[in-house]
Design a protein around this nucleic acid. Structure first.
Lengths: 139, 139
DNA sequence: ATGTATGCAAAACATTTGCACCTGG
DNA sequence: CCAGGTGCAAATGTTTTGCATACAT
């Protein structure tokens, strides 16, 4: 029940906000752009403006409910904050995304930041490649 | 003498292209946006269009002369291809960028890709933080 | 010469903002 | 009721493109 999450963030529980949360939860894609969500809502007959989706997602990000990623170029994508930090492996052909977490890499990053006098606030590791789906193997 | 690099890439050796290469080589900032370069050229009295800079940088990227990064949001930045892959540590307050390379992290990434059936084409690791410059220490 | 490059203006995107209207508590 | 939320259209910022002119070879 995330109505609590919304209230805790000082946000009213409105239809658009609930719908957007629902979509992020139930979609088979865990990483969605504002436009992905927009189209999905139009398809299901929900009336909404793209601007609202951007506004809501930005508020959710501020409230720590979602994370915004800037994969490659183009649009940002959003995923529900699961509480577990992870990095991403992305197939540049089919768009498949695999999440992973490697403690050794995490530790090394901390060490590198420390050595250079940085206090880490965040980090982003993305590995791009071609996955082993049959449809991705045409060279 | 990079006129060779240009010719090898099938690009004519023109004034704008030479100037852009020169700026990327001689600037104290190794990572520059198209607009950074644009302003620098206008300042030094060179006549150029922003569109040309984008076109040239995109061609350079295709020719492997520069690398385009999409740090955070906003504009892309470009750096000369040095031949040595490296990752970045970026200060979110002053914009300072430190390059680093960690073999253990590189190896781990290969292992993770392999384990998930991905053939790596590229990867990007960016650590964001606050550096120890005096001007960055006001909390 | 002649195929490429360039500059400019306009287009194309992704995202944000202003504002009048609507809605949740 | 009324602060806050929404839809729409217009604004913004970045990058790309069309086209007529200029340049490199």
């Amino acid at each position: 029940m995330e109505t609590q999450d919304l209230k805790r963030a000082g946000l009213k529980v409105t239809l658009p906000r609930m719908k957007i949360l629902e979509i992020l939860e139930s979609s088979n894609k865990k990483h969605m752009s504002a436009e992905d969500i927009y189209k999905l809502m139009l398809d299901t007959g929900d009336e909404i403006g793209l601007a609202t989706i951007y506004r809501v997602l930005t508020q959710f990000e501020g409230a720590g409910l979602v994370i915004r990623h800037h994969f490659e170029a183009g649009q940002a994508v959003f995923e529900l904050e699961s509480g577990k930090h992870h990095d991403h492996l992305i197939c540049i052909k089919c768009g498949k995304i695999v999440e992973f977490l490697d403690e050794a890499i995490e530790a090394k990053q901390k060490e590198i930041a420390k050595r250079n006098g940085f206090r880490i606030s965040d980090h982003s590791l993305i590995i791009y490649g071609i996955c082993d789906n049959s449809s991705c193997q045409q060279r």
